[in-house]
């Protein structure tokens, strides 16, 4: 039976040396297995043989980040959130590593609304057209690329890798693009309601 601990105990035992630390690591590992298994079980891209690598990488990340734990949740919750980040980042990497960002962008156009295969509510057509206009004329190539890749669901890690930039730089590109779009659309007189209901259900 795994022994849970209060937050202070977890930190102290993981920062200790010798058997105290070893026991705490073994217990934490078992709890991470429970959390990871339940959160990955419904995914078709997860196979059990990946678990050991996920656990090993997660424990390293958790120990490295110990001083960032702010004691505002249960320690195990915090540790599990890091393990999930590690596992999902790896799964996304596998899913997207053979997809070329360049090709994805080249294959997709911000085409006129008539090409859209959704049902545009007539009075919202103007909004979607305005959005395309801003995307095509007000954003940089890199901003447009990032915006498109993210909407297509491409993994951020993979986008950053193929663009040769850091995750932080990628985030800034994405934020600048979204914020510019929002400013331009609001300035053009579109309100939040029209953003929410552009398409028929």
């Amino acid at each position: 039976m795994v022994r849970d601990r209060n937050n202070d105990e977890w930190i102290k035992s993981l920062e200790a040396e010798g058997p105290v630390r070893e026991t705490a690591l073994a217990d934490l590992r078992e709890l991470l297995v429970v959390g990871l298994k339940s959160s990955l079980k419904s995914r078709s891209d997860y196979v059990e043989s990946m678990m050991d690598d996920f656990l090993q990488d997660s424990l390293i990340r958790i120990l490295q980040a110990l001083n960032q734990f702010q004691n505002r949740s249960r320690f195990v919750t915090w540790a599990t959130s890091i393990a999930i980040r590690v596992a999902m980042t790896e799964l996304r990497k596998r899913r997207w590593r053979d997809v070329s960002l360049e090709k994805l962008v080249a294959d997709t156009n911000f085409d006129p609304v008539s090409d859209v295969d959704g049902d545009v509510v007539p009075e919202r057509r103007e909004l979607v057209e305005a959005m395309y206009r801003v995307i095509n004329t007000q954003l940089t190539d890199r901003q447009r690329t990032v915006l498109l890749a993210e909407i297509k669901g491409m993994a951020q890690e993979e986008i950053a890798g193929q663009l040769g930039c850091s995750r932080n730089a990628l985030y800034k590109l994405s934020h600048d693009a979204r914020f510019r779009l929002k400013q331009e659309l609001v300035q053009a007189g579109f309100d939040y309601q029209s953003f929410a209901f552009a398409f028929n259900e």
Binding site: V128, L148, I151, A198, F199
Partner: peptide, 22 residues
């Protein structure tokens, strides 16, 4: 290939929810 209606709506949603400081 153009964006699907669902993708355009997702784009509109993230644009709507974008804040100056994030």
């Amino acid at each position: 290939m153009s964006m699907t209606g669902e993708e355009i709506q997702r784009l509109l949603d993230v644009v709507r929810d974008t804040q100056a400081v994030e």
